[in-house]
């Protein structure tokens, strides 16, 4: 039923990397926050390994990198409330949306295609 939602945001930011091992997730989130701070409406789409970002407690690790959970908790403050998750990304990791730290909309492959088509500007990290 969520499949018929219309996404009227200016910008879709796709996050495809997990919270540890590279700076992709952090730098992707930074881009989303900056866009929101500049008054743009942002949708965030967690794809593939990127859905792991939504697992609770992604805190600072032994490498000294900042955790991403704190940033995700700030999304609401930035008015980023369109949080989308690739259904297959979740199932590949054996997760369901109940396991995640934030309320998300889970997208089937056809719904995913529509989200891409409905955004003029897409940034992929």
């Amino acid at each position: 039923m969520q499949d018929h939602h219309h996404y009227d945001s200016d910008l879709l930011v796709i996050l495809r990397h997990g919270p540890h091992g590279s700076s992709w997730l952090k730098e992707g989130l930074d881009a989303a926050l900056v866009a929101a701070a500049f008054g743009r409406r942002v949708s965030l789409l967690f794809m593939g390994e990127g859905v792991a970002a939504l697992m609770p407690c992604q805190k600072k690790g032994p490498l000294g990198q900042k955790g991403t959970a704190e940033t995700l908790e700030m999304l609401e403050m930035y008015d980023i409330d369109s949080l989308l998750v690739e259904e297959q990304g979740l199932s590949c990791l054996g997760l369901s949306s109940d396991d995640l730290m934030l309320e998300v909309t889970s997208l089937s492959p056809p719904a995913l295609a529509r989200v891409f088509a409905e955004h003029r500007l897409v940034l992929t990290f």
């Binding site: 200016d10 910008l11 930074d30 881009a31 900056v34 866009a35 701070a37 500049f38 743009r40 500007l121 940034l123 992929t124």
Partner: peptide, 20 residues
């Protein structure tokens, strides 16, 4: 410059093409 410039470019230009 800041990331705001990237957002601005994306909004202003007809196409923003990513290479990674």
């Amino acid at each position: 410059t800041g990331l705001g410039q990237l957002v601005d470019l994306g909004m202003r230009c007809d196409r923003l093409v990513t290479f990674g």
